[in-house]
Design a protein around this nucleic acid. Structure first.
Lengths: 217, 217, 217, 217
DNA sequence: CATGAATGAGCTTTCATTCAT
DNA sequence: GATGAATGAAAGCTCATTCAT
């Protein structure tokens, strides 16, 4: 049963191994430039095996996105929904936990990749819009609405406000994955400091004066 | 001969027409996804003719970069070298004229494109690093050094300082060329306002207190 | 054990279920376009199991042919050998019983299929020639020889005579399985009438005048 | 200019050479089993060149059909329209000229091929139905209508009547291209005799007694 | 100079067959 | 016996580059 078990384990691990290899390569080379054979190789299987688990390159990519981005919105949504503290702290928590769970991982390469290739793959662009951008925006919008409803945040244009939060995170993701930043250690942004600095500005802009304890910021 | 003259003119215009078509397509589709045949078509010549002027797709791209980015550093360098006003104003002039001459044109798509594809084309990455990033950095660095030397700017880590200026411009370029920003009019950044706002922060951070007239900022 | 028994039964039924599924699909899609996995699926077993019973796709096909065509020649041969009536009636019986046992069943799709694909699978062509065409021709030839020997039929070129009988049956089989005939109900041949009509002509051509009772024809 | 001319000639000959090679191979192996590379090879060009003239295997096949079957209906239609003799002779002329121009050529392999593969390629089936079957049926139908209108032919169900003419030609085409008939010289139908024999039966069935001179038939 | 026909390496996807369990 | 995960040889199609004209 030893071997049986080993095989079973491998079988169940396959999709994960393939998704991991695919994430690596998609982030490293982009969607179009990644060859499925290379994904298979890196996962230690043959070309044919990959197609046993994912019917096409496109579906493989979608699965990678679901695994690393869109599949997590449900959990995050719940987490934020049941958050007890101030909205100001929720925004802080939101950005920092985004860094921990996405920004600091390879998954942060996906937004960068999509920015570059969405135009060439309309089907993927549509998928990404529906499964990532839309839910992500909604999530942030709900946080802002919570702040406004609780009297913590000033009235604001919600759509615009969403990008106030999103843009700094996107930029950080892009920066991390642009070749220039890697080679040059002098510019390597310290993500925590960057996020803190952004948060200062953002929260100062969002919160109603005096309504929130901002001593120390 | 009328026709002779027209032909001559066309002949001399060829490279320019090709470069213009190539810029359009490279920015629209990226480097890899752009087919040389389409470039030729858009320029109104045959595929063979394109290779008459540019020995390879790579050289075509390099020429596009030279035409639109690196080729202008000499002029800019001189311009900034002979600038008479305060360094603070020079920085303002620098960022605004960058927007006028690059940011607002299709050329601003090139940095975005390179960010996405540099990894797949090391030769191009090297070229871009040498012909654009390095000179650009140097230019900015010299401006900062001028500010420090004249006692306008505080002492600072030059490398890091360069990115203080560069990053906002890069982000603006990326934003402009990302599909998301186009569709959503709510987020469409007003470039001038964006630049002004960035300049406020940047200059406040760079200038020595009281040494510079910052009334109204 | 109930289950044991059921399992045994299933086990013994396996080859039959596979052959039935294979016949369906071969007839529907042709030999090359039929995927063994689909055959297995339709038979309710896994791909591996199919290869347990039939060592290759080719052998599977041969088994289908044996089951539905060549395997029956022995019985038919005996049946015709011991036929008591006139050869004219034997021919009638022959064609009608061919329709009942082959023509009206899916098996009639095999000759059509072979006509289309024999050229691409020489091994199968050889097998089919030896196991179906040759025995079939011999059977018909012996019937014709019986007619001649008994003074019922005129002298005739036997080889040519064989096709006088075979051709109308083949055409009927082809017609039945050609997509054109299915959709167009106006042309849907009534097989019985078709066979009767063909028999009239054929027998009139074969029988010696006045030697055979053809009143009513 | 010698070479120029030679090249021009080759360029103009290419599509024809490719269509000819394609016809050969499609007829020999069927649509699915024919590899485009082999078509190119037989035409003496590379794989890529084939795709220069035909955007896909499917379009290549359609072009073959147009070149050899559907493209000729216009001419035939006119020819039959302006026919001066009796409709009985027109039918004779029709079948014999079909043999000369299609039946005796490789083109007669196309109907056989379609019969076998139409089910697997719906797009092609639709195309063939529209461009070959429909026009062909219409042509025959108009001939029959002419016979009826001129009082030469009896009243008849037109749709059924069409197949009275079509079926024997199809069978001849199938027969010619079935491997069985080639190898066995004993059965090799003499097409002229076959057609004559069929015409006798058909015309006897269609013509009104005594209305047409049928001495000698 | 300008052309565009020709090339062929390279990519995604399919499927008969094997074999460890 | 039965399974189904794994394989890898094809096959259709693309596109940068060459070169005869």
């Amino acid at each position: 049963m030893q071997t049986r078990a080993r095989r079973e384990r491998r079988k169940e691990a396959r999709p994960g191994e393939l998704l991991s290899a695919a994430l690596d390569l998609f982030v490293e080379k982009g969607y179009a430039a990644t060859r499925v054979e290379e994904v298979a190789q890196r996962a230690g299987v043959s070309k044919g095996t990959l197609f046993l688990y994912f019917p096409s390159k496109e579906e493989l990519f979608k699965a990678v996105v679901r695994e690393n981005l869109s599949g997590r919105f449900a959990e995050w949504s719940q987490e934020f929904e049941s958050y007890q503290g101030s909205t100001e702290d929720l925004v802080r928590y939101c950005m920092n936990s985004w860094w921990d769970r996405v920004g600091s991982t390879k998954a942060s390469g996906i937004p960068k990749l999509m920015m570059g290739e969405a135009g060439n793959f309309p089907e993927l662009a549509k998928f990404y819009q529906e499964e990532v951008i839309q839910p992500g925006n909604d999530l942030i919008k709900r946080i802002l609405q919570r702040g406004v409803a609780l009297g913590e945040f000033r009235q604001l244009d919600e759509t615009y406000g969403v990008y106030t939060i999103l843009a700094p995170m996107l930029f950080l993701a892009m920066w991390k994955h642009s070749p220039g930043s890697c080679g040059d250690p002098g510019i390597a942004l310290d993500p925590r400091k960057y996020i803190d600095s952004q948060l200062q500005t953002i929260l100062r802009g969002l919160c109603i004066q005096g309504n929130s304890a901002r001593k120390g910021l």
